[in-house]
Amino acid sequence: MLMRRYRSILALMLALVTTCLVSCGSPAATTPPPAYTTQQVEQIQRTVSSLWEVREKMPVLKTRINNRDWVNVATYIHGPLGSLRQTMSYLTRQLLPQEQKAASEAANDLFEHLQKIDTASQSRNYELAIKNYQEALIDFDRFLKLIPDASNAAGVA
């Protein structure tokens, strides 16, 4: 009989402790989604300006393709566009984690199209070169749309 009372008291105490722990526990803290600081956006904007210069010069590549100037097509891809991969990789790493995957995919697609243009210039294939030039522009623009501007800054120092 003493055992039954002991079990009842023990069960009651466990119920009280459990109730207290559950009711006194705080809900999981919700963190705000990550945002860019003003300094991050400024750094990204300084780097992206060189990308905009390259993007504005892309019609030079189209002119060379249209003129079937294959040697200069390859030279342009490896010359003025040569540092593009490094710059885009740096910018991709500066983006928020949820945007890095899309930026990386756009950059990789751009490089694949530039490689195909280079291959087309070696085989003197105008149709393949101009098709991949158009696709490269789409990928370049897709990448640039992912770059934050001042309106994306959280204002946190």
Rank of each mutant, 00 (worst) to 15 (best):
A106H: 01
R85H: 14
N66E: 06
S151R: 09
L144Q: 10
R46M: 11
Q39E: 13
P148G: 03
T30A: 11
S50N: 11
L95K: 15
K145N: 15
R85V: 05
D69S: 06
N66H: 00
A120G: 11
L16Y: 04
A153F: 06
V60P: 09
I117N: 04
T63F: 08
E127T: 10
P148F: 02
Q98L: 01
D109I: 11
P59C: 02
G79L: 05
L96R: 12
T119D: 13
A154M: 12
D141S: 07
L14G: 05
E56G: 15
Q43W: 15
L137H: 09
E127A: 11
A157G: 12
K62P: 13
A120V: 00
K101I: 00
E127Q: 11
Q115L: 13
Q122W: 00
R68E: 06
R142T: 09
H78W: 00
N125V: 02
V17W: 01
A74M: 12
T75L: 12
L137E: 10
M3H: 13
D118A: 06
A35Q: 08
E42F: 12
L10A: 12
Q43G: 09
D69M: 02
L10K: 02
S121L: 01
R4H: 04
K62L: 13
Q122I: 05
I65D: 04
D109T: 15
P80D: 11
V156R: 00
T119P: 02
D141A: 10
S89M: 14
N152I: 07
A103K: 10
Q115I: 11
R142N: 15
G79S: 14
Q40R: 04
A35R: 10
P59V: 04
A15G: 14
C20V: 13
K116G: 01
L128I: 12
C24K: 00
R7D: 01
N108R: 03
I130P: 03
M13T: 14
W52G: 08
Q115F: 13
D109V: 13
H113A: 01
H113G: 07
E127I: 08
N67P: 03
V41H: 07
M88Q: 10
